[in-house]
């Protein structure tokens, strides 16, 4: 089937199988490999993207459900010369090691801060990131980064 969606601001039309997932569309059809797959039970959060303004797990959205949607991936929020404040905060606070969970973590964190109204404390950040697993950082610096990004935006 054919679906049309906006990805990182550009309209895309892709021909996909009925059983394709949004993450397949992003990684395979569109070559946006910054969105990762780390589990098969919708737990790890490595695949988180924004869809119509909400953080979602792109491994648990069928391509058809994303038809007509506005999708933003890690590739769409900034680049090395013009980083999103959350990307910058992750770098400045050493909030990543192997980098595999990082795209999903950053996309979740952006959504969390946007919806947090500037009022997030450490506990709220930890609670808000429960859908993203990181095996490297112990979350310590991720939490720092998210709080730093909140203060800087």
């Amino acid at each position: 089937m054919e679906i049309t969606l906006t990805v990182n601001g550009a309209a895309k039309t892709v021909d996909v199988a009925d059983n394709a997932l949004l993450v397949d569309v992003l990684r395979e059809s569109l070559g946006l490999t910054g969105t990762h797959v780390g589990c098969d039970t919708s737990q790890c959060g490595a695949c988180v993207v924004h869809m119509n303004g909400d953080a979602v797990k792109s491994c648990t959205v069928l391509a058809g459900q994303a038809n007509g949607a506005d999708v933003t991936t890690i590739e769409g929020i900034g680049n090395p010369d013009d980083l999103h404040p959350m990307q910058e905060a992750f770098r400045d606070n050493h909030a990543l090691q192997c980098g595999f969970c990082t795209p999903g973590m950053i996309m979740s964190a952006i959504d969390l801060v946007q919806k947090g109204g500037g009022a997030l404390d450490e506990a709220a950040v930890r609670d808000g990131l429960e859908g993203n697993l990181c095996r490297c950082t112990g979350y310590h610096n991720i939490v720092k980064a998210v709080l730093a990004a909140q203060s800087s935006t």
Binding site: T33, G34, T73, I74, Q87, R91, D92, G99
Partner: peptide
């Protein structure tokens, strides 16, 4: 020192085997 690695990892430009 901030990490050299980060520029690619925070922008989704990492190159993992499955990529």
């Amino acid at each position: 020192v901030k990490r050299k690695e980060d520029a690619r990892f925070i922008t989704g430009a990492g190159n993992y085997t499955d990529d």
